[in-house]
Computed example of a mutant assay.
Amino acid sequence: MVWYYGRRSTKQHIQGKPIRFNYKLWPATTRNGYLISCEPYQRVKSAQSPYQEYGLGTAVVLLMKSCLPVQLAPYNFYFHNLFNSLTLVNIVDEHGNGATGTIRNNRLAKCSVTEAKLLKTGARGAFSFTTDTNLLIVTFATNCHNITPMQKVDRVASVNNKRTNLSKLFIVLSDVQSGIDRFDKNLNSMRVELRGKKWRFALFAFGLEATCHNAIIKTI
């Protein structure tokens, strides 16, 4: 999200976010938070790309993927459930790349996995999964990770409030999805203090902040 304090009809509202009313950008970053590209949310116009037949979320990811250099392939992509679908995972897999992301229940295409709301009624750490030749579906879908290895974590049980060791999937414990969180965190520490009256200044300031952030990450 891009900070903006003025009045503008194109601003977005996301409940529960630190910046609830501002411009929304969909960024693509590396694992350490380096910004590769970003796509501003433009409502219906956001899906106007060569991939618009697959829907908004898939179209945005495939458009950003097309900007990456082919000589550095294959890539492993990780995305939010807003974008993820079985269609997207299959398309990325056809291009020889890895794809992993949390997935919503209405995009599972009737796969034989237990719904998340039913799993919440069971013991903490319970999970359900199904697998195909190249596809594993739990509460996320992936074509480049397996159900093993399992790792032990220390958590508080929801029944007796006592600490216990639970088995967690390795992919759940990994930090591969934290690149965008690191980018947002770093950007908050280097905000442009000036505030312009025009709506364009907010996007201009974001460009300066992102450029400085990438320069710092590149030298680390």
Rank of each mutant, 00 (worst) to 15 (best):
L136K: 01
T142Q: 03
N105F: 10
R124V: 15
Y51S: 01
N84W: 02
P27Q: 01
Q52F: 14
K110W: 08
T29H: 05
T139S: 15
T114H: 04
S128K: 07
N105Y: 11
F83P: 08
F127R: 05
Y54T: 10
L88E: 02
F77T: 02
A126W: 15
G125Q: 06
V138D: 03
V138F: 05
V113I: 08
H95A: 13
V89W: 04
L68Q: 01
K120N: 11
N32D: 12
L136D: 03
Q42W: 05
N32S: 12
V113H: 00
T133D: 10
A47V: 12
N90P: 15
L62D: 06
Y75Q: 06
F79L: 12
Q42F: 13
V60G: 02
P50G: 01
T30C: 07
V92A: 00
G57W: 00
R31L: 13
L135S: 03
G122K: 14
G57F: 02
Q71T: 12
S85M: 06
G57Q: 00
Y54N: 14
T114I: 11
F21P: 05
L108A: 04
H80Q: 11
S46F: 06
R20G: 14
L108N: 03
N76W: 06
A59S: 15
A73M: 11
K24N: 15
A47T: 12
E115R: 08
F129K: 05
S85C: 02
F140V: 07
K45Y: 08
S37L: 10
T121H: 13
T131P: 15
R31Y: 15
L25V: 15
E53L: 15
T121Y: 10
I91T: 08
G125I: 14
Q48L: 14
G55Y: 06
V92F: 03
V70W: 09
K65M: 13
D93S: 14
F77K: 01
L135G: 01
H95K: 12
L88N: 04
F127H: 08
L108K: 03
G57A: 02
F21W: 10
F129V: 06
I103D: 00
K45W: 04
T130Y: 06
P74R: 00
T133G: 10
L108G: 02
N143V: 07
E94V: 09
